[in-house]
Computed example of a mutant assay.
Amino acid sequence: MINIIVVNHVAEQGGAENVLLTTLKHIDKHKFKVTAVLFQEGILAEEIRSIGIEVVTLAAGRIRNVLHYVRTVLQIVREIKRARADIVIGWSPKPFIYAGAAAWLMRKPVLWWQHGYPSPASRFDRLVSRLPAKAILCPSDSVAQAQNDLGARLKARVNYPGIETELFAYSALDREQIREKYQIPAAAKIITFIGRLQRWKRPDDVIEAFSRLQDEQYYLLVVGGALFGEERDYIQELTGLAERLGCADHVVFAGHQTEIAKYLSASDIVINASSKEPFGLVVVEAMANGRIVIAVNSGGPAEIIDHNWNGLLYDGSREGLYQCLLQAVKNDTDTQSIGRRALKTAGESFSAGQMVSRFEGYLTDLYNEAQSIAR
C-alpha cells in the first residue's frame, strides 16, 4: 500500500478541484491510501469524504505571515507522520508552497499540479517553480511549456484531465425538461456558454456573436456564476449587454449549475470563448454529449479539437467566433458528423480511467525511486 497525502486550499469546486475529485474517486484504493488535507471546510471536503477518503482541515494562515506559514507547515508534517505518507502532493501552486516545505522536512518525495498558466511577471509563480519537487504535472502541453519557460528545476509533464464520460451522455428527457424549464421551443436551436462568469472566459463575446444571428429560432443559454465570489457585478454587465444588443428575450442566464449534463443535452452548440484556456473540461464534457463545440484555437482546446473534424476552432476574434457560429448553425449535415466524432474522441482520449492510470503510474514510479534510494 502506498500512502499519499494531497493538500489543497479551496473549498469550492473549480476546474482543478474537479480533476482532483475525479482522480480520488477512481484511484485504486487497494494500492493507494489517500488522505486529503484541505485548508477549508466546504463542498469539496464533503465530496471527498463521500467517496471514502479521509479529510483533514487545517486553518492555514497567509503565506506572508511567517508564523502562520510555519505553523501550517508543521501541521502538515504532523499529518505526514500520522498517515505514514510515502508521497506528498500539492494540488496547485499555493498548497505546494506549504506541502513542499513539509515534504522536504520529512524527506518525502513531493509533486504538484499546475492547473493554470503561470505568469513570468509573477514573483510567486517564479518562486514556486524553483522549489524542489519530483514532478510537476500539467493539464496540457501549452501549460507545461509555460511552466518550463519559467526556468523550473525540472521539466513539467502532461497528464490530460479525464471525465466520467457516462455522466455526460446525451439524454432526450433532459433536453425536453430544460427546454420546458426555460420555455424554449422544442424546435429551437440552443447555443450554450458554460463556465464561471469571469472576463477572461469572454461570455460577452458569445453574447455579441449570438446577437448577430438575428433569427427567432436561436436561443442562448449562459450557464454559470461567480463561483468564488469574483466579479459579482459582471452578471449585470452581461444582462445589460444583451439588452443593448436587442437579444435579451432570447438569452437565458441560468446561473451556477451543478448538473451540467442536463444543459449539454438541451444544447445544440457549446462555445468556449476563453482566450487562454489551460485545458477546458467543459469542452470534453460537451464532446462526450455529442455536442458541437466551438473554441479558440489556442491552449488546451487546440490540443483537444481537430478543426472541422471533431469540433470548430477560431482565431479568438469576435468575427472569427461569429463565422464559426454561422457554420455550425447553417450546415446541419456536416455538424452532426462533427458531433459523432466528438463523442468518439471524448471516450477514446479523455476518460477518467486513462487520466488516473497515468497518474498512478507517476506515483508508483516516485514510490519505487524513493524505496530504491532508501535501500
Rank of each mutant, 00 (worst) to 15 (best):
H9L: 10
D205Q: 15
V143D: 03
A169V: 08
A352T: 07
L363P: 00
R49K: 14
V6R: 01
R49C: 12
R232G: 10
L173R: 15
L20D: 02
F253D: 03
V270W: 01
I292P: 00
Q75Y: 12
I191G: 01
S211P: 03
K33W: 10
S129P: 04
R84M: 10
P120V: 11
V110H: 04
R62H: 13
L38N: 05
A188F: 01
M355Y: 07
V283W: 02
N289G: 03
G15H: 01
L44D: 02
A99E: 05
L44N: 02
W104S: 15
G255N: 07
P118N: 08
E230N: 15
T258R: 09
A45E: 06
E231A: 11
I48F: 06
I294V: 09
G195Y: 02
S119Y: 11
E230D: 13
A209E: 00
E54R: 15
I194C: 06
L363F: 07
G353S: 10
G311Q: 03
V283H: 03
R64H: 13
R318T: 09
W113C: 06
A328H: 03
A59Q: 13
Y69I: 06
A60Y: 02
I305V: 11
D28W: 11
G361Q: 06
D141K: 14
L313S: 03
S171A: 05
A60M: 05
Y362I: 14
A346Y: 00
F168M: 05
G311C: 05
I48H: 01
H115V: 10
S119Q: 12
H30D: 15
D315S: 08
D332Y: 10
M1H: 12
H68E: 14
T345Y: 06
D141G: 12
D332I: 14
L213H: 04
L220A: 04
N310C: 08
G42C: 06
F279Q: 03
K344A: 13
G151Q: 09
L343M: 09
N65V: 11
R232N: 15
Q257I: 09
Q336G: 11
E259I: 07
G339K: 00
V293Y: 03
R358H: 15
D28L: 08
L312M: 13
K189S: 14
I87P: 00
G90R: 01
R62W: 13
A295I: 05
V128K: 00
S171Q: 03
R157I: 09
R78A: 13
Q40C: 15
H9I: 10
A288N: 02
Q236P: 08
I184P: 02
L197R: 01
V10T: 09
L264K: 02
G116I: 10
I5A: 04
V143M: 08
L38R: 04
T345D: 09
V223M: 04
N308C: 10
K344Q: 11
S337N: 09
P301A: 07
V284H: 00
A99V: 07
E231C: 08
G15W: 00
H30N: 15
V293D: 04
Y69M: 09
L197N: 00
S265I: 01
K330C: 13
R126D: 05
F39N: 05
L24F: 05
I178Q: 00
Q217S: 15
L67I: 15
R49W: 08
G224K: 01
D86T: 06
R375N: 10
L154Y: 07
W112Y: 14
D332R: 15
A346V: 04
Q177M: 14
I48N: 02
L227Q: 14
R244H: 10
A188H: 00
T192L: 02
G246H: 06
P161S: 08
